[in-house]
Amino acid sequence: MTNFSGEVAALAAACLWAVASIVYGKLGARIPPLQLNLIKGIIAIAFFVFTILVTGELFPSITILPMCLILLSGVIGISLGDTAFFTTINTLGPRRALLMQTLTSPISAILGLIFLQEKLNTLAGCGILLTILGVAWVVSERTTDIGHISTAEFRRGIVFGLLTAAAGAVGAVLSRSAIANTQISPLWAALLRLSAGILILLVWASFRQQSTFRLSSLRNSKVIAGTLFAAFCGTYLGIWLQQTAIKFTSVGIASTLLQTSPIFVIPFAIWMGEKVSIRAILGVVISIAGIALLFYL
Rank of each mutant, 00 (worst) to 15 (best):
I291N: 01
L241A: 12
S21P: 05
S287N: 06
V285Y: 01
Q35N: 12
A166T: 15
T212L: 14
L174S: 06
A289G: 08
E274Q: 13
F59A: 13
G234L: 04
V54T: 07
F48V: 06
L202R: 08
I246H: 03
I149A: 06
V159D: 03
G252R: 02
I70C: 08
L130I: 11
N90E: 12
I45F: 00
G252Q: 03
L257I: 05
F232P: 12
G168N: 11
T144D: 15
L111G: 06
R142V: 06
V170A: 13
F59D: 02
K119T: 15
R219P: 00
A152T: 15
I62L: 14
L80G: 07
F207C: 09
V223T: 15
P262G: 02
V49Y: 09
R208A: 00
A196P: 04
A136C: 11
S108W: 02
L113H: 05
V49H: 09
I246K: 05
F232E: 13
H148A: 11
A12D: 06
T182N: 08
V135M: 08
I246N: 01
M100Q: 11
V284A: 03
I45D: 01
G74R: 09
D145P: 04
T144K: 14
I184T: 10
L38S: 11
T83C: 06
I43T: 11
E153M: 08
V8S: 09
F229R: 07
A167C: 15
I45R: 01
F248N: 14
A165W: 00
G238Q: 08
V54D: 00
R176W: 09
I110Q: 05
M100C: 00
P94Y: 06
Q209I: 10
F115C: 00
L72P: 04
R279S: 09
Q183S: 13
F48R: 10
T87V: 09
L294N: 07
V75L: 13
F232Y: 14
L111V: 10
A292W: 09
L228T: 10
R96W: 08
T143Q: 10
Q117W: 11
I224H: 01
A189S: 14
A280Y: 09
L191D: 07
K275M: 09
L187K: 05
A97S: 14
L258D: 03
H148K: 14
I39L: 12
A14H: 05
T131Y: 07
L36M: 15
L133R: 03
I70H: 04
